[in-house]
């Protein structure tokens, strides 16, 4: 269980940033995962009072605050319309409504967890992470970065003329995924594969003519590992199946 002495609600991002430079302090999102470790820290830094919750839709982009809960993402009309329901599909298998009312998008994305459904989804969209000091970074780049002491402020999704499909494969309906897959199709195709079980990754290319071939080759292009939910070999098969099925929905 996570033990700490202070629970601080900074009044500004600058204050939060300053606090976060100390190793003994930790930023807490929805507190879904952080507390599961046996960590001891002096203070947890809570961004709840910085107005970072909520989804703002602009003409050319969505700005999703770091403290937006997964449940808000699931129910947001505009964003789900834009993603063809992929946003809802990416989160609705995560534990349960009560859990999704707690945990935040910022926590999920910042954590860059191997099992993350949402990281997979955003990798397939034209998404950027706005860091307090680091500025706006393409999410594909952010996904590869090491953890630092910066603060994730929001996620930006640039609107484009694309169609998106999200699928995941789970051994049990609310378990961590064995594999996740998000594909968006516009002028080209972006395929993100997650829960490999390493961090999600994305490949981008021209729209293929031979879907079967694309599914096989794209599935092969990722690397996979083994854990109790599935072997590397099996994950590659599932990747192929999810890519193929997603394509059939898109084309």
């Amino acid at each position: 269980m996570l033990r700490f002495k202070n629970h601080i609600f900074p009044g500004s991002l600058e204050e939060a940033y300053e606090l976060n430079q100390k190793r003994s302090n930790k930023i807490v999102g929805g507190n879904g995962w952080l507390r599961l470790g046996s960590k001891q820290c002096v203070s947890i830094i809570d961004l709840s009072n910085l107005g970072l919750d909520g989804i703002e839709e602009k003409d050319d982009e969505f700005i999703i605050g770091a403290m937006t809960t997964l449940r808000e993402l699931e129910l947001n009309k505009g964003f789900n319309e834009y993603t063809g329901g992929a946003a809802k599909e990416a989160v609705r298998h995560i534990v349960g409504v009560q859990f999704r009312n707690c945990v935040t998008l910022g926590g999920s994305i910042y954590g860059r967890f191997g099992f993350s459904d949402v990281l997979t989804l955003f990798l397939a969209l034209d998404s950027y992470v706005e860091m307090y000091k680091g500025g706006v970074i393409p999410i594909s780049e952010f996904a590869k970065m090491k953890y630092d002491n910066d603060i994730l402020v929001n996620i930006r999704v640039k609107k484009a003329d694309i169609k998106t499909v999200y699928t995941s494969f789970r051994n049990q309906s609310t378990d961590f995924p064995v594999l996740t897959c998000a594909i968006s199709l516009g002028s080209n195709i972006k395929t993100a594969i997650g829960a490999r079980p390493a961090r999600a990754d994305v490949v981008e290319g021209e729209i293929p003519k031979d879907m079967e071939k694309y599914a096989i080759e794209t599935a092969k292009s990722f690397t996979y590992g083994s854990n109790i939910r599935g072997s590397a070999e099996y994950r590659e098969q599932i990747a192929y199946v999810l890519i193929k099925r997603s394509l059939s929905k898109l084309i």
Binding site: H7, N31, R35, I44, N101
Partner: peptide
């Protein structure tokens, strides 16, 4: 319920 939203009270740090 935390402000009418069903929430896991095990997950919520008290000061929230």
């Amino acid at each position: 319920w935390l402000e009418d939203k069903p929430t896991l009270s095990c997950t919520v740090p008290l000061m929230r």
